[in-house]
Simulated assay, not measured.
Amino acid sequence: MLETSARLLRLLSLLQAHRDWSGADLADRLGVTPRTVRRDVDRLRELGYPVNASPGTGGGYQLGAGAELPPLLLDDDEAVAVAVGLRTAAGQGIEGIGETSVRALTKLEQVLPGRLRRRVSALNAFTVPLLRAPQQQGLDPALLTELAGVCRDSERLRFDYRDHGGGSTRRAVEPHRLVCTERRWYLVAWDLEREDWRTFRVDRLTPRPPHGPRFAPRTPPADDLAAYVAKGVSTRAYAAQAVVRLLVPLEEAAERISPADGTLEAETERSCLLRTGAASLDVMVFHVMFMGLEFEVVEPAGLTDRIRASRDLLSRALERGERSEPGAPRERA
């Protein structure tokens, strides 16, 4: 029975590796007769795997598309390659696939034998990626998979958290989801002490296992968690907040403004609203100007005053510079 089961797994692996196999080729690979191959194919069909067969000299066997994803069978080198690829995508926060990569990596690392885990860890530890937008600070993918696991299993998480000023606190939360931007990862969780939803930067937390106990998941703070986190890290977290009308279409603004800079909302075909935050209104002036887009202030009125003050300051600096240029007329004492 064990020999037959092992042979079925080997047959399934071969069917996944190649699009078409002749019966003779499969028999040669498995060390059995073509009749045994036909019986094994029938067993796979009974187990729910769609194996198509075409008769004749040019015919053969093919694994078809089914309603359910069959088990993915990988050899050692393939498993290492997949794990390294997923870790690279997860660690760099590549837009659109980062969170998916973490979920897949969590599942894969659960079934990797120890010898393969060591190979993956060594390859990641001694490889330096040169990518378009690397993170400002390295983030261990193992931390991401650990957090993804407690979110999946609904286990309480305890960790040390370092705030912006460098102070450290011990937190206990019910983790809900991981959210990634182009460069950063965030954990959305229910803070047990503060009895409210909080967003934590993953690079600032250090888990303190063991994890648990398990909890009943709560209703999340928003249907769109990406928008919720974007608003929190770009607006709610700052003392000064503003709404600015950008005089360009939403699509053009989105090419220059990341979720960490603020949240965008379409207004007309030629304009959109930016909701953003900064440490102060003076900092806000330069934050908006550095975006390089035509704009006007919606609120607060104080931001307009600070822009006017910055304009006057710059104008005076230019005037003084022009008077000090060689050949410029000098003022009489």
Rank of each mutant, 00 (worst) to 15 (best):
R162S: 06
Q241G: 10
G31N: 08
G85I: 05
Y49N: 01
S168L: 13
G262M: 04
R170S: 13
D140K: 05
V233Y: 12
A227I: 05
T57Q: 11
D28C: 02
H18L: 04
R270C: 03
L116Y: 05
L318K: 06
I94L: 14
R311A: 12
L225D: 01
S168C: 11
T106R: 15
P217W: 09
A189S: 07
F295Q: 02
T263I: 13
R119D: 12
Q62A: 13
D76Q: 12
R311F: 15
V285S: 01
E319M: 14
L63N: 01
T100C: 02
L63R: 04
L123F: 07
R35H: 10
E3C: 01
L47M: 07
V173L: 09
K107A: 12
L273Q: 08
A6W: 03
L314H: 11
E68P: 01
R119Y: 06
Q110S: 09
R184M: 07
L9C: 07
G114Y: 06
T268N: 00
M1W: 13
A104H: 07
L123S: 09
R208W: 07
G302T: 08
L14P: 03
A216H: 10
E68N: 11
S271T: 12
P221L: 10
V51F: 03
E182P: 00
P175H: 11
A216T: 14
R118F: 09
C180H: 13
R256W: 10
R19S: 11
A122M: 09
E78M: 07
A216Y: 05
G58W: 04
Y161V: 02
V41L: 11
S22I: 02
E251G: 02
G98I: 03
F126M: 09
L130W: 13
L139Q: 07
E99F: 02
P70H: 01
V128N: 08
L12Y: 05
D25P: 01
E251F: 09
D163Q: 06
C151M: 04
Q16I: 01
D40S: 05
G58A: 06
R183F: 06
F126Y: 14
D196I: 08
T33N: 02
A17M: 02
G167E: 15
E182F: 06
R156G: 08
G31F: 13
M1T: 15
E195P: 02
G212A: 09
P213G: 04
R10V: 04
S310P: 00
G292P: 04
E331V: 14
R10Q: 14
L264K: 04
E325K: 14
F200I: 00
P329W: 05
R87D: 11
A239H: 08
D223V: 12
L147M: 03
A133W: 07
P249T: 08
R245F: 07
L116S: 03
L8I: 08
V202A: 06
Q135L: 12
G59W: 00
E95Q: 10
S324G: 06
G321A: 12
L131Y: 02
V82I: 13
E252A: 15
L123R: 15
P207H: 14
G48S: 05
T199A: 09
D305K: 13
M1G: 15
E193S: 13
G93N: 09
F290P: 00
P71M: 02
H211M: 05
